[in-house]
């Protein structure tokens, strides 16, 4: 396999709150290779969004800070770069797509002027060339009548169209890596499907790598090659997508998959549940963070934190992983 495009090692991100210092991300490591889509999945507060932001140096500071670890992009450590160096990387090499398209677009400028700004700054295009490039990008993300849409304001577009514009802007400088944070969550079901398909197609077309941050396992299953499941600031399982859905090894992944209504026969009324709730990040147990809610807990789980270890095609952080027969 080729060298990883992005390589995160022992990343620790802390937030200072009134009650104390919280570790939102606690020592995670992973690689992203060129041209692949990696899913980062977990429930709210698990640290997935902060991880995505940290790759672009966008962790709000204060209250947040990167307290340890490295984020290497093409061999260069992004942690500790100053704002102007990060800005040079952001947009050009790594781009981000946010959940809420309306907040990512400036309401007082037309779609075209927001796009040509970026194109002229990073690609040195003339005004005329930039406009042509913007129209072409809009067409590529599936916006009908792009030569007309380019002169419209964000509020004139529907939610799905806006998110396409945001995607087009993210693509404008041919980034090598896109971090997409819940890119379809704010959209309606039918629009969500269109945008997701478009995103997968564009990822292949532009030959970029993508990190897809989401809580929706359905989205992960459709779009990703590989996925990482996060729980309480740690990666608990890392697996190729088919393996994860067919043979989840961490009891948390298994519980999440089991509790999706779509995977449960509709005649059966009782849904399997993961009992209890996510522990408070300020009062984490000394051992495995999932132990309290786990049906496969061993004595060891209460005193020792499991690390990611290979298990078949996956890597799992569990002393007593689920075994699913092939």
């Amino acid at each position: 396999m080729s060298a990883p495009l992005l390589s995160v090692r022992d990343l620790v991100i802390e937030f200072t709150t009134e009650q104390g210092v919280v570790r939102a991300v606690d020592g995670i490591s992973f690689d992203v290779f060129p041209n692949e889509t990696v899913g980062l999945v977990g429930e709210s507060g698990c640290g997935k969004t902060v991880t995505g932001l940290s790759i672009l140096g966008l962790v709000p500071r204060p209250p947040g800070r990167i307290a340890g670890g490295r984020i290497e992009f093409e061999g260069r450590d992004l942690v500790g770069l100053d704002e102007s160096e990060l800005r040079a990387i952001r947009g050009r090499d790594i781009a981000m797509i946010f959940q809420e398209p309306m907040t990512a677009l400036n309401p007082v400028f037309t779609v075209g002027s927001q796009m040509t700004d970026v194109l002229r700054r990073y690609k040195g295009l003339s005004r005329r060339q930039a406009r042509a490039a913007a129209i072409e990008l809009l067409a590529r993300v599936g916006i009908p009548a792009p030569d007309r849409r380019v002169d419209e304001y964000p509020h004139q577009l529907s939610g799905g169209m806006r998110q396409r514009v945001v995607i087009a802007m993210a693509l404008s400088c041919d980034p090598k890596l896109i971090v997409a944070d819940e890119p379809t969550t704010a959209l309606d079901v039918t629009t969500q499907a269109q945008v997701l398909e478009q995103l997968v197609r564009l990822q292949e077309e532009f030959r970029m790598a993508m990190i897809l941050v989401t809580h929706d396992l359905g989205v992960i299953a459709e779009a990703c090659d590989r996925a990482m499941v996060m729980y309480c600031g740690r990666i608990v399982e890392q697996a190729p997508i088919e393996e994860l859905f067919a043979r989840p090894r961490h009891p948390y992944s298994a519980g999440l998959l089991a509790s999706i209504p779509a995977r449960v026969d509709d005649e059966r009324r009782e849904l399997p549940v993961i009992p209890g709730m996510v522990p408070d990040l300020l009062h984490l147990p000394p051992g495995c963070r999932f132990a309290d809610r786990c049906g496969r807990r061993l004595a060891r789980c209460d005193v020792e934190q499991p690390g990611l270890a290979p298990a078949g095609e996956s890597r799992v952080a569990c002393f007593n992983p689920v075994e699913t027969p092939r």
Partner: peptide, 14 residues
């Protein structure tokens, strides 16, 4: 078991 687990936790300890 699910109900009692929620009970046991009640509100966040903090």
């Amino acid at each position: 078991p699910a109900a009692s687990a929620v009970d046991a936790n009640g509100a966040p300890a903090a």
